[in-house]
Design a protein around this nucleic acid. Structure first.
Lengths: 207, 207
DNA sequence: AGAAAAAAATGAACAATGTTCAAATTGAAA
DNA sequence: TTTCAATTTGAACATTGTTCATTTTTTTCT
């Protein structure tokens, strides 16, 4: 028993260190992206920040893209968490959609560079985004599908999915352009008003 | 021999060759982007395709970004030309907005990589997109502003500009996501129906 | 036209960066 | 402790954007 436990503990050291390194690398990459954006991410900087050699990065991740995907995965998790509040505390389907959109805008504004990395990142030509990450993205459509289904109960499953995706894309486009200071020089409160108006108009047109 | 030299002197060989090189480089870059996307663009390939030395590229353009901006500038010009048809042949403001959106979708679908380059390209951290290029983009909002002003004549100049920008951003978001085969596996006709429905719904909600 | 000056084109060299790999280090087993 | 296997390391490599001394071409001057 004692021996077994000792064995297990000792055998665990490698796994433990590996996990710690993995976490450090993701955290370091996240920090660099927050500071300098996706374009300012350097393998050497990440390794230095994480306190490991350059080569060690490649023993944990296949390449830089895989590391970025993991940072994006965490960002998506925080985004989903932020959307859970308005999704649950809804007074009406319309209000729910409006609040979801506003929360999305606020998240983007409060995490500009991490949020941008979510959509700016591109895999190398011909390489597909892995399924596990695509499905993390697709879940976002669900937040919209629930209130939308209440507003249009006659919609079939397919049609509902299509419209959810379309409305998400529209809101995303608006938020996305809001983040480009060059094209939109307007305070956040006003952006939120515009977005609110947009969703309300769209919902009104639906009924 | 004397006459030949005089001819060359008068022809302004220097300027002519410089313009020809400029054109070749932009054309070569355009071709490379069409073939391999923005991520597949290489200074060496462009120079080789244009039939000049690597260094010559940098006698015409400050850096690769400037070259890309010029390719994007031409793409924008073609996009605007494509939008002129539906903008002029409109039967009603609503129809005008619908057709503009559909034409935008078709342009994106027919020039996927060039269109993607338009929005995927990022200047280096801290460097702003030059004014001349920003204003080329901003003109797109005007296409929407005209029918929108007819639908809501009570809107002030500022409010009209805001709403035009918002509607453009929404349509752009939808088209943008449509181009990501991974998230949207749907034929173009159906995408067009979705987009048409979206704009119609929004216009209906506006009135 | 020919020489001299100015401008432009060239491509080798440089710097930055992602990735690999042989050697060194460290953990696991006996 | 000793041995073996897994892991870590960072120097070296490959690719790419950019620069610059040198060469070539164009213009100017006589």
């Amino acid at each position: 028993m004692f021996k077994l436990k000792v064995f297990w503990l000792m055998a665990g050291v490698r796994e433990t260190k590996r996990e710690a390194l993995r976490t450090s690398l993701i955290e370091a990459a996240k920090g660099r992206i927050e500071m300098s954006g996706l374009g300012g991410l350097r393998a050497r900087d990440v390794a230095a920040d994480a306190g490991c050699a350059l080569g060690s990065l490649y023993t944990v991740f296949k390449d830089i893209d895989e590391l970025i995907l993991h940072v994006n995965s965490q960002t998506l998790a925080r985004l989903r968490a932020a959307l859970d509040l308005p999704a649950n505390a809804a007074t009406s389907p319309k209000e729910s959609l409006v609040e979801l959109a506003c929360e999305y805008l606020k998240f983007a504004a409060n995490h500009k560079k991490l949020w941008a990395a979510l959509f700016d990142h591109r895999m190398p030509e011909g390489v597909a985004v892995p399924d596990w990450h695509v499905s993390e993205l697709v879940v976002l459509f669900q937040y919209i599908a629930i209130p939308l289904a209440q507003l249009q109960p006659e919609l079939g499953k397919e049609a509902l999915a299509n419209r959810s995706r379309t409305l998400f894309a529209a809101v995303h486009g608006i938020v996305s352009m809001s983040m480009e200071d060059r094209l939109v020089a307007v305070p956040l409160e006003e952006l939120e008003d515009q977005l609110r108006l947009f969703v309300e108009t769209f919902v009104k047109g639906m009924t």
